[in-house]
């Protein structure tokens, strides 16, 4: 009974994902993460003379940047920015971290980032989702001021749903008032 229900839910998920692609009205903001679109820079263009070739540079990702993300000694190893209660401003101590990630984004236009905002558990789930969104948006705004591009960054909220710490103490809640910067393949 249980495995069957699980399989069914997988099938249902697959159907839902297909539905997500086909039934959603065309929305420019729904770029699939990680796909580089070459058509806008000339591939397949019919107005191009056959004697000239339009050069396209794949917006790949610098391998040293990817290595840095996994290196505990690098400036971009840390991904989390913590916030005060009911606050969305990025504290000074986190500005070097934001700056380092903004530089990585600027150097790698092909890399995508998802910022997940979080909130502590107190109060309404949906209101906390909106609070987490404010934090993710604050991180996104700071990254864009420092060189990140709109098309690279998506800010979303997990609200109070994915707590890092589940004790009901202030030190625990502080860990959950957080924005996490995740790159393609990490979310």
């Amino acid at each position: 009974m249980r495995p069957t229900a699980f399989k069914l839910s997988l099938v249902v998920s697959a159907i839902a994902l297909l539905g997500a692609c086909s039934s959603q009205p065309p929305a420019p903001e729904q770029n699939p993460v990680g796909v580089v679109d070459g058509s806008k820079t000339g591939v397949g263009g019919s107005t191009t003379s056959p004697t000239t070739v339009a050069p396209v540079t794949a917006t790949g990702i610098d391998p040293t940047s990817l290595a840095a993300l996994k290196d505990p000694k690098s400036a971009v190893f840390n991904r989390s920015i913590f916030f005060d209660y009911d606050q969305y401003t990025i504290k000074d101590e986190f500005k070097p971290l934001v700056d380092a990630h903004a530089k990585l984004l600027a150097k790698n236009p092909g890399i995508k980032m998802m910022i997940q905002g979080n909130a502590d558990e107190r109060g309404s789930r949906e209101y906390n989702l909106a609070l987490g969104q404010k934090r993710a948006d604050a991180v996104k705004k700071a990254l864009m001021l420092l060189g990140g591009q709109e098309a690279q960054i998506e800010s979303v909220s997990l609200g109070e749903e994915k707590p890092r710490c589940t004790d009901q103490t202030e030190s625990c809640w502080a860990q959950n008032r957080r924005g996490d910067m995740l790159y393609s393949g990490e979310f």
């Binding site: 249902v12 959603q24 929305a27 998506e154 909220s157």
Partner: peptide, 27 residues
Amino acid sequence: FEAKKPIIYVHDLGSGRRHVAANFKGS
């Protein structure tokens, strides 16, 4: 949150079929 971000679904209980009602950039 199955796609690692909040997306709104509409789910028909009898058939188990569901579709995405809102999946825009962001939440």
